[in-house]
Nucleic acid binder design. Structure first.
Lengths: 184, 184
DNA sequence: GTCTATATCAAGATAGAC
DNA sequence: GTCTATCTTGATATAGAC
């Protein structure tokens, strides 16, 4: 049987899973290694520190959202109603299958404000999310209305994910997407 | 100068401050002790473990909300409009002066689902919050509408606190209270 | 690329002097 | 009630063999 090489992306995916479910500080390098079928020393061949894994994990998820969700807002072959429907569909697909909720949101609350690198990345993610929504909403609303609505829906989504995790119920979360869709 | 005795409440207050700002796992017994002007060993005279401090901290905040905010919903000398205004005012007073946001919300996202004791307490807090809002809203809305609105506003408040922390801006947060008030 | 082994440090927690 | 001192464990991280 061939020895399986562990890629950086394998480690990132496993780290993301653990960070989401157990928190960042409560996940050790040994936990990550174990999830990858390695021992902790081996992880340092791929990443130079735990913080590097954390930051790469945030960027990895941000990139996924950019390429699979946010970009829907800028498609030219869809009208606003179609865009928002697809946007909600893809967002739901992600979060309804994401045990542990939204890593970027989780870390926004877990990390102290002094963690500048992490917080910068988290802000970029949420700003891109808001901007994408604004780009869809401005079809029907003016600039400031769109921005206000976008901010409200990002916040509502995050709060609903929190409640979804806490109560293990998707009920309230699903209403957010419906409400957003009905705006257009 | 008399030696100052440290009370359990002193320790709880300092712990809450640190947990909110730096997270639960990222706050050590030494950090807590230092904030109280003690060394870590001394804390164990008052609490038998860090988890006990954490759980007591959640209960302490829950009690504060019950006695200062949630109970407004059950006052008999106010009408619904007055209740919701006071409810929002007191909620704002707390969160606008709370560096680090909402500890119960923070820990809902930081802790793994296996931490049953903590999660039970957090659920009790949010359920009490929702129930209080329902009791005010049912003046104008039916039972299921009220519950849906209550759940939405608790989630929106938590999401907005997240964004308030992340962007260090109270802007979006303040709109939540206004929106809630305008429901009655 | 993964392992064994280890260095170093900080964590939670306890015992006992004052 | 707080201190000094210590125990034990587990954390991040590194060096070098395979």
């Amino acid at each position: 049987m061939a020895v399986k090489k562990t890629s950086k992306e394998d480690i990132l995916q496993n780290s993301i899973k653990l960070f989401k479910q157990n928190g960042y500080y409560n996940t050790s390098m040994a936990n990550i290694a174990s999830e990858c079928g390695l021992i902790k020393g081996s992880i340092y061949h791929h990443f130079k520190s735990k913080d590097e894994i954390g930051l790469e994990a945030l960027k990895f998820i941000h990139k996924y959202f950019e390429e699979n969700i946010f970009k829907i807002a800028y498609k030219t072959n869809l009208d606003a109603k179609e865009k928002i429907k697809l946007f909600v569909k893809k967002t739901d697909e992600y979060f309804l299958n994401s045990e542990g909720g939204c890593l970027l949101g989780n870390l926004a609350l877990e990390l102290s404000n002094e963690n500048v690198l992490f917080n910068d990345e988290i802000r970029l993610y949420f700003s891109a999310w808001e901007k994408a929504l604004v780009n869809i909403l401005k079809d029907k609303y003016n600039e400031s209305e769109s921005l206000e609505l976008a901010k409200e829906y990002v916040a509502l989504t995050q709060g609903s994910i929190m409640m979804m995790q806490l109560y293990s119920s998707t009920d309230s979360y699903l209403k957010v997407g419906k409400k957003l869709t009905s705006l257009l």
